[in-house]
Design a protein around this nucleic acid. Sequence first.
DNA 1: GCCCTCGTGCAAATTATTTTCGTCGATGAT
DNA 2: ATCATCGACGAAAATAATTTGCACGAGGGC
Lengths: 287, 287
Amino acid sequence: MDIFTTIQEGRAQFSPSEQRIADILLGDFEFAVNASIIELAERANVSPPTVTRFCRNVGCQSFSDFKVNLAKTAFIGVRYLNPEAKSTEPADVAEDVITKAQNALFMMHRALDPVLLDKVADRMSRAEMVYSFGSGGNSSMIASEMQNRLFRLGSRVTASNDHNMQLMLTAAARTDDVIFGSSFSGRNHDLARCFTLARENGITTIALTQSGSPVAQAAELVVGIDLPEGVNIFRPTSTRFAFLAVVDVIASLVAYRNRKLSTVTLRHIKQQLVEHRDGDDRQILGD
Amino acid sequence: MDIFTTIQEGRAQFSPSEQRIADILLGDFEFAVNASIIELAERANVSPPTVTRFCRNVGCQSFSDFKVNLAKTAFIGVRYLNPEAKSTEPADVAEDVITKAQNALFMMHRALDPVLLDKVADRMSRAEMVYSFGSGGNSSMIASEMQNRLFRLGSRVTASNDHNMQLMLTAAARTDDVIFGSSFSGRNHDLARCFTLARENGITTIALTQSGSPVAQAAELVVGIDLPEGVNIFRPTSTRFAFLAVVDVIASLVAYRNRKLSTVTLRHIKQQLVEHRDGDDRQILGD
DNA sequence: GCCCTCGTGCAAATTATTTTCGTCGATGAT
DNA sequence: ATCATCGACGAAAATAATTTGCACGAGGGC
């Protein structure tokens, strides 16, 4: 766990002096990370020893150890507290997009549950057939990425962004199949209907969506992604990066579980590409 | 520029003592970031003043300022030097995937040229019609993401992952149109052919691909993405995150350029979704 | 009311960092 | 060959920052 979160979450248990220190850290990161213990102490109206003790409290060995830890999270942390891009100049916009993407990954990672992932990967890797559903642009991208990742590993998989097809595919699915569905809003009721139907038929359902949303409620296993949406309507949602990363994690886990099949299948694909394309076998699988 | 890169690139100009310091920093980040000036000096077989002077040399005010700067890049930097995931346990795999994604974003950002982006956005925002091409799974995702981002802004745009269609569309395109194409390997010769044809007809071509590759050579404007591919064949390529981010940057810039049209179009879309879906207007545009 | 605990600051001790100053060796001019 | 100059570097002094030990006072339990 990063120190920034530790402070945020532990704030309530701190003594009054320590809370004042915490508030400065949370409020003015840039100052805190550059200040000496004396400056920080003065600003918080406490004595330097209190700052040292605070550092020990949050699990650091010393003030300098604390500052290093603070600075480490700063790369992500500072900016995720900061609001929007400074201007619409390319350099600022690029920094904004990239920082927000990194934040989305960072925050998703923080909330990710490995035990759940283990279960998801287990079901997926043992599925006879995987159906990957998602609509509306963002989730259709995720659904087809899931297909694109899994077929290389030897999984039988299809993706669909068509509500009617999804319903028909669900109705045609069998017990050992798995239905995976993505929904950014969690309000894709057609997808929820597929999940409900599938569960009635004893088919494993896995949702990648907002926790507690209708879609989440309908699915058996839910990988919850709950990130704040920025206020800038012109910037594409950075949450896509988090969704995409979850797809990659799941796909990697499935690969390790079906390592033999994955290896053989990947080799076959590579062979075809190299022979058929240009003999350069260092290029990635699929342009 | 981050300090880590500064040291890497400036290494040749350092004096012998300073080079020894640099080598320790580059080689054992974890030690460097936790060490005191004395420990660092001892390990490099130099005196503390030399370390202080080194810090000044690389643009820091003091040793502690230097350490903070070092630590800031460590969040990304340390790990991007480190190799593969420790195990195939979900927690490790997740960390690996997410870190690699963040690195891809970080490194892409470092190499990104704002002036070029400006040109790209300018052409795209003034295009009568945008054709977005890409094939092979990864690039088809990028191509359709470009469409998904642009249509919301009022741009006329279509995406295709079909080589034959791409060629026909290119042949049918007119002077004020723009052809955008993505290729991870840069070896998509069909795409390169489209670019060549388009240029013969005076149509703007924009490639998102490896610098110097056949596709890059065929296009007029090239956003080069040159990231090392990992050795782990089981992990999906993290370069996708970099490509996706570039799409977002370009889309944002186009949005700002056509701000009025973008705003109106986005509002129209939102209205339809809210009325048609569930009245919650805080959800993102397109599930 | 007494005693214990906890949070806190003060002052001293310790430790770390920076500055000053002088040496050394390389380079180049005479 | 000799000497002046310059930059790199370290020893030691000076300074600054950090930690430790101790004492005091508030609040709570007995």
